Measured scan of single mutants.
Amino acid sequence: NQESVVAAQLIPINTALTLVMMTTRVVSPTGIPAEDIPRLISMQVNQVVPMGTTLMPDMVKGYA
Rank of each mutant, 00 (worst) to 15 (best):
P57G: 13
V48T: 13
I11N: 00
M56A: 12
T53W: 13
V60S: 00
M59H: 07
Y63T: 03
Q2F: 12
P29R: 03
Q9W: 07
L40V: 09
I37R: 12
P29F: 11
T54Y: 03
D36A: 12
L55W: 01
N1A: 15
E35Q: 12
N14H: 09
G62Q: 08
Q44T: 12
M22D: 00
P57K: 09
Q47A: 07
A8G: 06
G31H: 02
E35N: 14
A64P: 10
M22P: 00
D58W: 14
G31N: 01
L17N: 00
V26K: 04
V45S: 09
L17R: 00
N46H: 12
I37G: 06
G52W: 13
P38R: 09
P50H: 08
I41K: 06
V27P: 00
G62W: 11
V45L: 09
V20N: 07
L55S: 01
A16S: 05
Q47T: 09
P12I: 03
D58V: 13
L55T: 01
I11E: 00
I32R: 01
D36T: 07
Q2D: 15
M22K: 00
V20Q: 04
G62K: 09
G31F: 02
I13G: 09
A16T: 06
P57T: 09
E3W: 08
V49D: 00
P33C: 14
I13A: 09
L55I: 13
G62N: 15
V5Q: 01
V60D: 01
V20L: 07
V5K: 00
V20R: 13
R25F: 15
A64K: 13
P29L: 05
V60E: 01
L10T: 11
Q47M: 10
V60L: 10
P12G: 15
A8L: 11
T18M: 03
G31R: 03
I41P: 03
M21Y: 08
T24R: 13
D58E: 14
Q44D: 04
P38F: 13
A7T: 13
M56R: 12
A8W: 07
V49P: 00
L10V: 10
A7V: 03
L17Q: 00
E35D: 13
R39Q: 08
P29Y: 10
N14W: 10
M56T: 12
P38I: 09
M59W: 15
T18H: 04
D58N: 15
N1P: 15
S42T: 05
L40F: 02
S28T: 14
M22H: 00
T24Q: 11
T24A: 13
G52R: 06
G31Q: 04
V49H: 01
V45Q: 00
S28Q: 15
V20F: 11
V45W: 02
M56H: 06
P33D: 06
R25K: 15
I37M: 12
V20Y: 10
E3A: 06
S42Y: 11
S4F: 04
Q9N: 06
P50K: 14
A8V: 06
A34S: 14
S4Q: 02
I13P: 07
D58K: 12
E35L: 05
S28P: 02
L10E: 07
V49C: 15
I41G: 02
M56F: 07
G31P: 00
V5G: 01
G62L: 12
M43N: 08
S42H: 09
M43L: 12
S42E: 08
L17A: 00
I11G: 00
Y63D: 03
N1S: 15
G31M: 03
L40G: 00
T15P: 00
E35K: 07
L17F: 02
T18D: 04
T30L: 11
N46P: 02
R39N: 06
P33H: 08
M22G: 00
Q44K: 09
T15I: 04
R39T: 08
L19K: 08
N1M: 15
V48L: 14
V5L: 04
T23I: 13
V27Q: 09
V6A: 06
S4L: 01
I41E: 06
P50W: 12
I41Q: 08
R39K: 13
M22L: 14
V48K: 10
M22W: 02
Y63S: 04
T18S: 08
I41C: 05
T53S: 13
K61D: 05
R39V: 06
A34R: 07
M51L: 10
Q44S: 09
A64N: 09
R39H: 10
V26Q: 15
V48Y: 09
I13H: 10
K61S: 08
D36H: 12
Q9P: 01
D36N: 11
D36W: 11
V60Y: 01
Q9E: 14
I13D: 12
K61G: 05
V5N: 01
R25D: 07
S42K: 08
P50S: 09
D58L: 12
A7M: 03
V60F: 13
L55Y: 01
M51Y: 09
P29C: 15
P29H: 08
E3Y: 09
S28L: 04
I11V: 09
I13K: 07
Q47I: 08
N1H: 09
L19N: 07
N14R: 06
V27S: 09
S42M: 07
I37H: 03
D58Y: 14
R39D: 03
M21A: 06
T53L: 13
V48A: 12
M56N: 07
M43S: 07
I41H: 04
S28C: 14
A16M: 15
I37F: 05
D58P: 10
A7K: 01
I13L: 11
V60P: 00
